[in-house]
Design a protein around this nucleic acid. Structure first.
Length: 135
DNA sequence: GCCAACGTTGGC
DNA sequence: GCCAACGTTGGC
């Protein structure tokens, strides 16, 4: 099973919003690299939910509820959306500073390319982050 | 098809 | 608020 990380500005859509809604369509991605990752997602795969700008931390776990389908909000029809459901909040947030300070996470895609809104997370990175979050 | 200019994202 | 990184656009 692959793992992923998605970013959202909590002002626009926070993890609490996802919990409140019980799930959401993850659309609005307008970047090819990110879209490729969306297309690779499978139902049931788990996703780290990261708050950018206000927060700068991984705050919760979500999972893929529906694989990629055409993003209705995209007039060109080139991009896709998925559906995500909340799993649980993390016991402890894992901040960007925490992740940068952890050598095991040095190769993380989201650290390498900070603007990428959807990125893959390796098994080892996944385990490391969950451990940092208090299990 | 190249590349400069511009816009957007996101960390600081 | 600034700036670096990166993607996109448009002139040539």
């Amino acid at each position: 099973m692959a793992h992923w990380l998605v970013k959202s500005e909590p002002n626009a859509y926070s993890f609490d919003d996802l919990v409140r809604d019980g799930g959401t369509v993850w659309d609005g991605v307008r970047n090819n690299a990110a879209a490729l990752h969306l297309k690779a997602m499978k139902v049931g795969e788990e996703v780290l939910f990261y708050h950018s700008q206000e927060g700068k931390a991984v705050v919760g776990l979500a999972k893929v509820a529906r694989t990629a389908f055409p993003d209705k909000s995209d007039p060109t029809g080139r991009f896709v959306a998925v559906e995500l459901k909340p799993v649980r909040p993390l016991k402890k947030e894992v901040t960007l500073a925490d992740m940068k300070a952890e050598p095991k996470l040095a190769g993380m895609e989201m650290l390498r390319q900070s603007r990428l809104s959807v990125s893959p997370v390796s098994d080892e990175q996944w385990k490391t982050i969950l451990k940092m979050a208090g299990g």
